[in-house]
Design a protein around this nucleic acid. Sequence first.
DNA 1: ACCTGAACACCGTTCAAGT
DNA 2: ACCTGAACACCGTTCAAGT
Lengths: 218, 218
Amino acid sequence: MAPRNQRSDALSKERIVETAIELLDTGGEAALTFRALAARLETGSGAIYWHIADKSELLAAATDHLIAGVMAGVVDEATPQAAIRTVALALFDAIDAHPWAGPQLFRDPGRSAMPLIFERIGAPLMALGLGGQTLFDSASALLHYILGVAGQNAANPRLVPDEADREAFLGRVAAQWLQLDAQAFPFVRQAATQMRDHDDRAQFLFGIDLILAGIAAR
Amino acid sequence: MAPRNQRSDALSKERIVETAIELLDTGGEAALTFRALAARLETGSGAIYWHIADKSELLAAATDHLIAGVMAGVVDEATPQAAIRTVALALFDAIDAHPWAGPQLFRDPGRSAMPLIFERIGAPLMALGLGGQTLFDSASALLHYILGVAGQNAANPRLVPDEADREAFLGRVAAQWLQLDAQAFPFVRQAATQMRDHDDRAQFLFGIDLILAGIAAR
DNA sequence: ACCTGAACACCGTTCAAGT
DNA sequence: ACCTGAACACCGTTCAAGT
């Protein structure tokens, strides 16, 4: 058997992380096991631990890698508002395509993904003239809203090729909401009728604009 | 050995769920195993499956139970804005005390926890005169913001008796942010200096008010 | 220094057997 | 109808042994 440590494609943290992302994209979080990863990398499961501390760090590193790529691809915009909308939509689409990353964004705010996102939200607000506590609190509000939608999206089946699964999912939720008591749940029952053909992306942007309008109104 | 199925405290879904919440509150999500749960309930691990489909349903049922209790305790308020603030803060404090429930809120929007929350947000907006798409989108924005903060809180160590752990956590995040490049991260570095003594609860309310102001400005 | 892969401790879940 | 608890299939992680 050829010694692995002399191959040109030797193990490295980057190669491990990229392979992990492939497994996550293909089969979701359940598909990422050290055994599957080792098999794909043609190595022993223990070898991975030489480069990565544990599974928690592996998932965090995969998220950092993904977000860094997304953020690097975001183009500059003319206005601060447009810049915030563009970054927000880029994140929305990234979680749409890689739903496993949604819950990860909540984990460790010190890691690289979080500062990358936070800077892209806060810098435009500075350009708008915000500062001090208002700046910090406004940026945090936008960040939390974006993460909240990301987390929700990660739970929904959105990345199906055809729209059938998504329709079925929304239809099931709407049906459950319509079964609620009309006296106790007037709003939710009305919302149920709007569920099936609502545009997630437009609704997401509406919320961004709501927060931006709130900032402008101060 | 006395037969279990004749005791007055026989197994029931409610007793299982309440015991599960005790384990979750005491030791976090890792402490909830079917073996630990069965030991605490003085039964076999398989007996639980007679009442609960699987672990996913157990966690969802625990969350529903928790949120139902929280929502039942929320008092009515004079104005729609006050009602929304009160519900939001009640959820904030509930996740603060039971951080394991944060990620669960993202799971299944059809379950009872989600409609309970959504109704309490949407009904006051209806009272404000909102309707149609604007009503649905505005309520969704508030919901996503609240869930985003809840998810973030669940990841942070907040429920420690003394403030030492929280201080250490925020200090560590701030230190990591201060190590970033000054040219590339002007905002994040400034935010780092505000991290240690910021008031999570006040910042959360600031975001709620920002969205409410955005709604009012439309 | 880096890799191998068996072994360990632990899960969720099932199911034949009991009462 | 409900409970028991061993058994199964599967994890993450460790570590003595290799190169």
